[in-house]
Design a protein around this nucleic acid. Structure first.
Length: 269
DNA sequence: AGGCCTTTGAAGTAC
DNA sequence: GTACTTCAAAGGCCT
């Protein structure tokens, strides 16, 4: 239901012109430092947000964190980015939709759908994205500080280029290979990712950059550190034996001095 | 119920 | 500055 709603919404979004320069710089974009966060100037909502703002605007999710979260009123770099009026989805190889789930920018509502849609980057502590974070104000029972902390929805990290690629291609791989296990699928996707041309990868890097930018505007004070330690993990030593385990292809390539973009190291093949 | 697996990339920490 | 760590997604598997 939620998926379908956002699905259709995002299909509308499939038509924005590729940003100038996209497809020419497959290398990851330079990191967006906190210093670059918008802190002044005239707030300007990106066209995407304007378009998808609910007719009955949902209150800004100010209660999702102790930090002050502002509605993204300013979009100096994104203005004109998500144009709904012209162009195509660049040359992205999508068929029906770009993401399996709504990307970051779809959280504020859908035309014709008045129900508030929680921001996809916001999930309850359970990890499920079904929470209606804005309804939490209805709570009447006072909560202890610990409870409050535990029930605070998590603002997820924005997806990187590879994650965006995975989201789009996962279904295809599942269909082709009749696989279901994500670990196996991800291995295939990892290989396919490296098989992509630089131009193809560049599209995803660019999208990821926009996602990060938007995330920064939505959650100016958010840091990846906020989510550190939320997953309980086994001690690293169990699956990290540096003597026998070559590690990920990435680490393996680093160890053998291979090109991270193009080379496949033997031990990881 | 919840962590592991598996991938890459971004961002954080540690030295 | 470099190396290492964590977490984003996904869903079957395992404890």
């Amino acid at each position: 239901m939620y998926k379908d709603t956002v699905y259709s919404a995002f299909n509308l979004l499939m038509h924005y012109p590729p940003p100038s320069g996209a497809g020419q710089h497959p290398q990851p974009q330079p990191p967006l430092h906190k210093a670059s966060q918008p802190s002044h100037g005239v707030p300007q909502l990106s066209p995407l947000y304007e378009h998808f703002s609910s007719p009955h605007p949902t209150p800004a999710p100010a209660d999702i964190s102790q930090k002050q979260v502002h509605r993204p009123l300013q979009s100096p770099d994104l203005s004109g980015f998500y144009s709904l009026t012209s162009g195509s989805m660049g040359q992205l190889p999508h068929t029906v939709s770009w993401f399996t789930h709504p990307p970051l920018m779809l959280g504020s509502g859908v035309p014709g759908h008045h129900a508030a849609i929680p921001h996809p980057a916001i999930v309850p502590p359970s990890g499920k994205q079904e929470l209606q974070p804005y309804d939490r104000s209805l709570k009447t029972q006072p909560e202890s500080k610990g409870e409050k902390e535990a029930k605070k929805p998590t603002i997820k990290k924005p997806l990187n280029a590879f994650m965006l690629y995975m989201k789009e291609m996962r279904a295809k791989v599942i269909a082709e290979c009749t696989l279901k296990e994500s670990a196996a699928i991800n291995q295939i996707l990892g290989r396919r990712w490296h098989a992509l041309s630089r131009e193809e990868q560049a599209k995803y890097y660019e999208l990821a950059r926009k996602e990060r930018q938007l995330h920064m505007q939505l959650y100016p004070g958010w840091s990846a550190r906020d989510n550190y330690g939320k997953k309980k993990r086994r001690s690293r030593e169990k699956h990290q034996d540096s003597n026998t385990d070559p590690g990920s292809p990435k680490k393996c390539r680093a160890r053998f001095g291979l090109n991270q973009q193009t080379d496949w190291c033997g031990p990881c093949r």
